[in-house]
Design a protein around this nucleic acid. Structure first.
Lengths: 148, 148
DNA sequence: GTATAACTTGGAGTCGACTCCAAGTCAAGG
DNA sequence: CCTTGACTTGGAGTCGACTCCAAGTTATAC
């Protein structure tokens, strides 16, 4: 074998972790809460992941990065890869709504960048005159996540 | 008085909450953790906020929306309104770094929107072919925040 | 054979950011 | 005088998302 756990039979949890950037603990946690399906086990009960599993994990971290809570991802992940999105109009609507949120996020982040540029060039940061409220929609936040 | 707590003497916590969209509890919490300076009190020990205080709160929710943790905001808030940013090269650098992060966030969010558009029009969502890893930087997430 | 490494499990602990609560104060209205 | 309502305080509880741990198994390396 050349890379960690890659031997045509599939990826080890370590390999999956390296490929996705998600820690092993977190992958197990995702399985525990049912975000990922229970992984196949080898005779020794070690988890084995397929290419598809890895892609699913990547999709999770993708969605996570747009501020989607883990709970909300479930429907998208369940549907993943097999059937056609257009067969689930409700889900389709949800994702369009989510897309809208992301676009709003983008617009608002852009506003803040503009704000920074203005304030920085004007010198003082906490100016009041017409701090346009930076109308953000999402309540997006950073989390503990001190991933080693 | 016409609006809640507005009587030229300043804003009540309720008024400030309404103006900023931050709950009263959260405003007190911010004061508790020293993110906001201890508010002036009236004889009856009720908090009174100035226009400037309110703007400071708005700035907090602004920054929060860009994914900045409360702890990281302190330096910006302390400096707020009085002195010139360019006098604090270290802080200036920090905010430029933060700006960079926001721009990366924007780029990545844009990627995800593109991803959604492609996948949605192609039908299936969890496709693998060249799901370009949606190289997000920030680990931005949504939080509990079920604000009333 | 024994140590090392890579995994397994269940469960407890942490962290940031709230959110809620009980008990108390105070002013104004009826 | 008593109630109502807006506030005060300190502290406890919640929530999402990890993160860490101890104890156990198994396979290869020496």
């Amino acid at each position: 074998m050349s890379e960690a756990g890659v031997m045509t039979t599939g990826y080890s949890i370590k390999a999956a972790s390296e490929l996705t950037g998600i820690t092993e603990d977190t992958i197990r946690y995702y399985e525990k809460i049912g975000l990922l399906p229970r992984a196949q086990r080898k005779e020794n009960s070690h988890r084995v992941y397929t290419e598809g599993d890895v892609e699913l994990m990547k999709l999770i971290s993708c969605l996570k990065k747009t501020g989607m809570p883990l709970d909300e991802m479930r429907p998208y992940l369940n549907l993943s890869r097999d059937s056609n999105l257009s067969e689930y109009p409700e889900l389709y609507d949800k994702i369009q709504i989510h897309k809208r949120k992301i676009l709003d996020q983008i617009a608002s982040l852009q506003q803040i960048v503009d704000f920074i540029d203005t304030k920085v060039s004007e010198g003082n940061f906490g100016e009041r005159k017409r701090n346009e409220d930076c109308t953000l929609t999402g309540d997006v936040k950073r989390m503990p996540v001190r991933n080693k």
